[in-house]
Design a protein around this nucleic acid. Structure first.
Length: 485
RNA sequence: GGCUGCGUAGCAAAAUGGUUAUGCAGUGGCCUGCAAAGCCAUCUACGGCGGUUCGAUUCCGCCCGCAGCCUCCA
């Protein structure tokens, strides 16, 4: 029985799809004028995990995540760069898809773009004007008349009197009420513009999502998600627009993920304290980023730091180590109790942290019986990999996970990936292992230890198995550089 | 000022009205030529003050501290 925390009611509720077996999910995506940062990555990973779980539970899911490809910041950035705004957005859409693939985020079913939804947007604004919920301001822009919509503030728990509009930002004299927001914006010279009944212009941000979501999922759908900061005014405005225009209930469940923080402050473009996904990927494997995001509850704040990423990598490596050298065969009988506990965790508002702890329980049992009971080990490994897959992790080859890593040369800033496929590198290590084996045979411990230490200095750790064989691995960052430089 | 939410051991992070979270780090042991990994054991907790209760980290109130929203933001 899946329970989801609904921002609208501020309670965990039993999830009941509108239509049995089907789920419509809409998530506010990126405004594409720059690279995705870790905060964006969190939205992608969180809702990807939600989507994977719905599918796994047998729901027929339609997952929609929009792209805002026209807005003030895009126009401004394009001007700064001296390029066409479309070229700019295409570039960052491609980059976003790249980041997404790196983080094992499966593409949404539909990815509508604002610029391709202009007709639907105009149609909705027309309806709102006809219903007197919108008006043309003195500057020609079309505004939503917030006073005309009864439940305004229901999602954010705000009321119009308390909002004290204009306190922080100069009131636009073209509006009737300071809280009114723009639906259609008149174009200035040389700005991208579309024909409309109100003249050449472009859509406001809020109306895009109302139009795109109802277009893709219908007037009334199951779940709408996005970052916490979109609760107000963005999602509040969406409710006003959609319910105002259609007269129907818009969304049953509102899901909001918490922020990524840096030094206890929200990571954001405006504060400039952001790390882009591609920046972090220079230093950490993508799976560590995904693990890091999943290691806290999606509604909690998540503090970004090297230490946290190091931790995530170490934890992930523990799981891969358990998996290593066990053939996981899927048709083995699996221990249902782990699967049950995993599902209980996920059913409780997608508690990925608890779900992960189930994986560690599995890993521990697996480590214990690896030698003694290979058959059961296979079953446990299969279970571990299967549950990891539901979270979008543990799908790599364990050996290549262990033999790949980032080695920091402490004397300089130099860091590099040591790729397991580097044949010369591998050969060299094997040669030294062979040499050490001979030294061990001759009980020349000094020589054997010297080889092991010298390899360690160059970032390779040797492990002797009980049967006399020696394997090697790249240490995690935690082992090399515990304080994260 | 208004409205949300949070405060758990060295770090991170869950659950829970009475019973082991979990990962990393620490300590002791097993294993090992010695290590590493693994296993076993173990030390560090529930911001403060009251209240409800047989019993509260968990419920309620107040206080303190922190974050977010009230402007664009995932």
């Amino acid at each position: 029985m899946l329970k989801i925390y609904n921002t609208l009611t501020r309670k965990k509720e039993l999830f009941q799809p509108r239509v049995a077996g089907k789920v419509g999910l809409y998530v506010c995506g990126m405004t594409v004028y720059d690279y995705c940062h870790i905060g964006h990555a969190r939205v992608m990973v969180v809702f990807d995990t939600v989507a994977r779980y719905f599918r796994h539970q047998g729901y027929e899911l339609t997952y929609v995540r929009n792209i805002t490809d026209i807005d003030d910041k895009i126009i401004q950035r394009a001007i700064e760069n001296g390029e066409d705004y479309g070229t700019l957005t295409e570039r960052f859409i491609d980059a976003m898809h790249e980041d997404e693939r790196a983080l094992a985020v499966l593409p949404p079913d539909l990815e509508p773009r604002a610029t391709q939804s202009i007709d639907a947007i105009i149609a909705m604004i027309k309806t709102l004007v006809a219903k007197d919920l919108a008006y043309v301001g003195s500057n020609g822009d079309v505004f939503y008349a917030v006073n005309q919509f009864k439940g305004y503030g229901q999602l954010s728990g705000k009321n119009l009197d308390d909002l004290q509009a204009g306190e922080r930002v100069g009131v636009d004299m073209a509006k009737r009420n300071p809280m009114d927001f723009v639906l259609w914006k008149m174009a200035k010279a040389n700005e991208p513009a579309w024909e409309s009944p109100w003249g050449l212009g472009r859509p406001g941000w809020h109306i895009e999502c109302s139009a795109m979501s109802t277009c893709c999922l219908g007037n009334h759908f199951d779940i709408h998600g996005g970052g916490m900061d979109l609760q107000f005014p963005h999602h509040e405005n969406e409710i006003a627009q959609s319910e105002g225009a259609t007269g129907e209930k818009f969304v049953n469940v509102w899901m909001h993920n918490g922020f990524v923080r840096v030094d206890d402050e929200k990571m954001s473009k405006s504060l400039g304290n952001f790390f882009t996904v591609r920046e972090v990927l220079q230093r950490y494997r993508p799976e560590a980023i995904r693990f890091f995001i999943l290691s806290s509850h999606y509604r909690s704040p998540l503090n970004y730091s090297d230490e946290q990423l190091n931790d995530a990598e170490a934890a992930l490596t523990r799981l891969y180590r358990a998996l290593n050298e066990v053939k996981s065969v899927f048709n083995e009988t699996v221990d249902e109790s782990y699967i049950t506990r995993f599902k209980q965790a996920m059913d409780d508002d997608f508690n990925t942290r608890v779900a992960l702890s189930v994986l560690f329980g599995l890993a521990k049992e697996l480590n214990k019986i690896k030698e003694a009971d290979p058959h059961k080990a296979c079953a446990l490994a299969a279970t571990l990999k299967y549950l990891g897959g539901l979270l979008g992790i543990l799908q790599n080859d364990p050996e290549s996970h262990l033999k790949t890593g980032i080695v920091s040369q402490s004397t300089s800033e130099f860091t590099k990936w040591l790729i397991h496929d580097d044949e010369q590198f591998k050969k060299d290590i094997e040669k030294q292992i062979e040499e050490r084996r001979n030294a061990k045979k001759a009980k020349d411990w000094a020589r054997a230890d010297w080889i092991r230490n010298s390899l360690k200095d160059s970032g390779v750790i040797l492990e002797d198995a009980p049967d006399g064989t020696t394997s090697w691995r790249i240490p995690t960052r935690m082992e090399v550089d515990p304080y994260g430089k």
